[in-house]
Amino acid sequence: MKFSYFPGCTLKNKAKDLDFYARRSAELLGAELEEIENWQCCGGVFTTSRDEVATKLSSVRALKDTQAKGQALVSVCSACHNVIKQTNHAMQTDKAFADKVNRYMAEESDYNGETEVLHYLEMLRDKVGFDTLKEKVVNPLKGKKIGAYYGCLLLRPNTVMGMDDPENPTIMEDLIKALGATPVVYANRNECCGGYIAVESPELAKKRSNAVVENAKAQGAEMIITACPLCKYNLIKNGADIPVVYFTELLAEALGIKEDANE
């Protein structure tokens, strides 16, 4: 199984753990992640306006590159996945927008959203399979009570993202179970941490982040997992007193390859 891989700017810098353990775990699970050559930053957040063209070109380039290889595009950062998937959807459904983009890239062939876009979690569930994953677990995380934090970007807008039931998702809980741990379900797992508002109004980010952590703890979570560097940052910065880690770290731990990061 070969996939085109879009790491994104943060995974090359502040979120190296998210990237490193994703790659190593994929390798062990028989999924080869081929990094897209010369990828450019997705921009962090999708611009919904239909007349915003330039801000979406980096995603289109990655999608076209992937199409040329006949692969599916995988990313592990929630934000990259959201931006690329929403851009792909716009290319499929908004003819006037796609036309503008294709004129922009006139020297190349037209693109109309043909590439399959997957989050790493979907790759695990739909391509590798949680059952196969379970068989490869050598270090089951028995007794750990873990709250999955989805935030907004993985699930919404649901008509585009289509990963899971946006109000009652199970994909991360199923992952937690496959790794031998116990998932903790809590109401705020799909509510916003504040995201980029940390720049505009740190108090609002604090309020939203605290609401997530307090709710997870009240339901018995001893740890929170996330796929988003900004969620992780906001939760920790605003005083989370239980560990907040990337889901790929947990995955690597259960697969018995966690210590490799320091090599």
């Binding site: 943060t10 810098n13 502040k14 962090g44 957040v45 801000t55 980029y196 900004l230």
Partner: peptide, 16 residues
């Protein structure tokens, strides 16, 4: 701060 993810800055710039 030391932990500010690139994602925070690019997102804020994109929106603002």
């Amino acid at each position: 701060d030391d932990e500010t993810p690139q994602q925070l800055l690019v997102s804020a710039f994109r929106k603002y």
